[in-house]
Design a protein around this nucleic acid. Structure first.
Length: 111
DNA sequence: CAGTTGACAGTCC
DNA sequence: GGGACTGCCAACT
């Protein structure tokens, strides 16, 4: 088995390893793959988005991908992902919501 | 084969 | 704290 898969396959594999209530930045996923193409990771998500927990992969700012903030926030509240106090306030706009990377950031093979 | 685009990241002002 | 510029990698035209 190993990394016989394409770059996209490797990205999807890492995303699938991310447990609930946890998130990884595009840069972290890319670094795990040995690459530094954070944008390349985002491309894979856009292509395979819907078949993987894309909401568990966010930007370094702690914000979900543009145009999908609402969908991501809905998943965060459903899984209990740690959000910032400002965004945890109900009624706040989805674009104002941020994930607390200080606590939600997760990396594979570690706990 | 070279240029452009993109669900990004890090640094500078 | 927020906005702008540059660098990165992979796929498309």
């Amino acid at each position: 088995m190993s990394e016989e898969l394409d770059f996209a396959g490797a990205v999807l594999a890492v995303v699938e390893l991310i447990p609930p209530a946890r998130v990884m930045t595009y840069g972290d996923v890319a670094a795990t793959l040995g690459s530094r193409g954070a944008r390349a990771v985002g491309r894979v998500m856009a292509e395979s988005g819907g078949t993987v927990a894309w909401w568990r992969v966010i930007r370094a700012d702690g914000r979900p991908p543009a145009g999908h903030e609402a969908d991501a926030v809905a998943e965060y509240r459903s899984e209990g992902t740690p959000l910032t106090a400002a965004s945890a306030h109900t009624g706040a706009d989805p674009k104002d919501v941020r994930v607390d990377l200080a606590r939600a950031r997760w990396e594979p093979d570690l706990d």
